[in-house]
Amino acid sequence: MGELLRVTDVVKRFPVGRGLLLRKPTAEVHAVDGVSFTINSGETFALVGESGCGKTTTANLVLRLLDVDAGRIDFAGEEITHRRGKRLRELRRDIQMIFQDPVASLNPRMTVRDIVAEPLVAQGRRRGATGQVAELLERVGLDPDHAGRYPHEFSGGQRQRIGIARALALSPKLIVCDEPVSALDVSMRAQVLNLLLDLQTDLGLTYLFISHDLSVVRHVCDRVGVMYLGKIVEVAKREQLFGGALHPYTQALLSAVPVPDPDVEVKRRRIVLQGEVPSPLHPPPACRFHTRCWKVETICRNETPELEVRCGQHKASCHFAEPRAAVEIHA
């Protein structure tokens, strides 16, 4: 399997606040600060982190909904960092997106048929669109006879299927899934995750999967990148990450995810992080996690740890990286 997407040292900052007259930003949010990763064809790569870590901004940079401030993005061997206009619209055929909110992402004043056909029409493939829409709806488990209905007539899970059908319309190579199940009820969640897995098997899709929920990530991903305050702090294959996370932040994140088993919860050794994520306006110097880390030493405050290979393809940026299981149980 070849490399499909390569993101190299991308940076994105947002200006914050401004004077009344001169539109001069008073500060900048360091939303994404030197993020690099690659995704191979046919795999699922997850970006995980809490709100404000920059995972969604990274997704928007890959989708070219936002322009990078620095860095470079390559897709299928071609640089796409600065594509615009017609060339950018062509790129949309290959990179599609599934949204978090199945209500907000569907235009309430359009029928399902029009919503799913939207990418086809936008790309000038109006001919045969109706037939294709029926196929797509069937593919995601919806009744094609319901194509004339409006989104509000469907349940949350069904609406998410409509969004998935829309994303499939152009037969893309890469689909960016931005928290695709976090707005859904538990029973709907499993249905949609299974659908995403089936589609990947059938169509050979590649996913960039954005999520805050490590238990969801564990079910669908091949490789995982963990983000904290605009940087990737750890990248690993799924088994490596859940078997023995190296970065203290990843460990804390894993440890905070509840396990639906009272016996495990009682015996579990838990790390409860103190304090909250610092403001991305003024991220801490050197290691960004040092203000909340229990392993912190002087070096963490002075020297930025590199995202280095520790073993196999397992990378972590910590001066004191040591493996810890996702669910550690008292002996």
Binding site: V186, R218, F242, P260, D261, A326, V327
Partner: peptide, 9 residues
């Protein structure tokens, strides 16, 4: 419900 809940372990 228990069966379809995603879990870490």
């Amino acid at each position: 419900l228990l069966g379809c809940t995603t879990r870490l372990d």
